[in-house]
């Protein structure tokens, strides 16, 4: 069978190996790195701080493995506020219904941008970070930035082959949880079974397991992003196993049983 063996860098970057789909190249791919349909960079960020595990979404601390870091007050479920003085979340400012500009809430920044300077300047070094638990004062802790680049590429000794794709078995099912209606290629509701309720609207977050009338609530209580991962919501595993059963078909904004 005839074949080409790419030799220089442009050949390596443009060549599509036999059997690879068109999306094997960043140039032809969706190139969405959150989590990414071709690769998931969040799995790199998960270990960017030595001694703790974090999740890029919501700047969330998943686990603390190093007792010395725990001794500094860092605990699971905390959120990262800033790293070496660089903010990891920002206030979102916009017009309220009366047209006045005000702070509408906060939003976490994408780490590929927010941590770029930190990784470039401080890999292998310790930096001061601030963490917060809702309702408590922020705490400071010194953490080491993992050095995972070597010669401009991911160091295979730190990031073994396969890491970037290990979480991609079912990216589109996962995206039901990862994305909101504003970031979905086809129709995808956030809030279903809605009905007027006094001056507001009550209904269900589409990710709720229990979508009975008794479990309806006002929009603000259910769609808020902070609730992702709550026990009453459909899990990744639920989606992988039986997405159609849990999500149901939504017609006219309502569940079809």
């Amino acid at each position: 069978m005839p074949s080409l063996q790419p030799t220089n860098l442009t050949a390596q970057s443009l060549y599509r190996g036999r059997g690879n789909p068109p999306s094997a190249h960043p140039i032809t791919s969706i190139s969405n790195c959150f989590p990414g349909l071709e690769f998931d960079f969040r799995v790199i960020w998960k270990n960017v701080f030595v001694g703790i595990e974090v999740h890029e979404a919501f700047n969330y601390v998943i686990d603390v493995n190093d007792p010395a870091i725990a001794a500094q007050g860092v605990e699971p479920a905390m959120r990262i506020l800033d790293v070496d003085g660089d903010a990891m979340q920002v206030d979102v400012v916009g017009p309220d219904p009366a047209g006045n500009q005000r702070v509408l809430g906060d939003n976490n920044l994408e780490w590929t941008n927010a941590l770029a300077r930190i990784v470039q300047q401080h890999s292998g070094n310790t930096v001061r970070c601030r963490f917060v638990t809702e309702g408590a004062a922020p705490i400071s802790a010194d953490l080491t930035i993992r050095d995972f680049f070597k010669d401009g590429q991911l160091d295979p000794a730190v990031i073994p082959a396969g890491t970037l794709t290990q979480g991609l078995c079912s990216p589109w099912q996962a995206d039901y949880r990862e994305c909101g209606c504003y970031y979905w290629a086809a129709s995808r509701p956030d809030f279903v079974n809605a009905e007027p309720d006094g001056g507001g609207t009550k209904g269900h977050n589409w990710m709720l397991k229990d979508r009975t009338d008794a479990n309806k609530a006002l929009t603000d209580n259910q769609v808020t992003w902070d609730r992702i991962g709550a026990a009453d919501q459909i899990s990744y595993e639920d989606l992988y196993q039986a997405w159609e059963e849990h999500l149901k078909f939504i017609i006219g904004g309502n569940d079809q049983s």
């Binding site: 005839p2 074949s3 063996q5 790419p6 030799t7 220089n8 442009t10 050949a11 443009l14 060549y15």
Partner: peptide, 21 residues
Amino acid sequence: KYAFVVQGSQLFRTDEKTYAM
């Protein structure tokens, strides 16, 4: 045996059969 592809300045090593093709 090599093919230098002009668009993209890409260099490929080829086998005999590909080179002939």
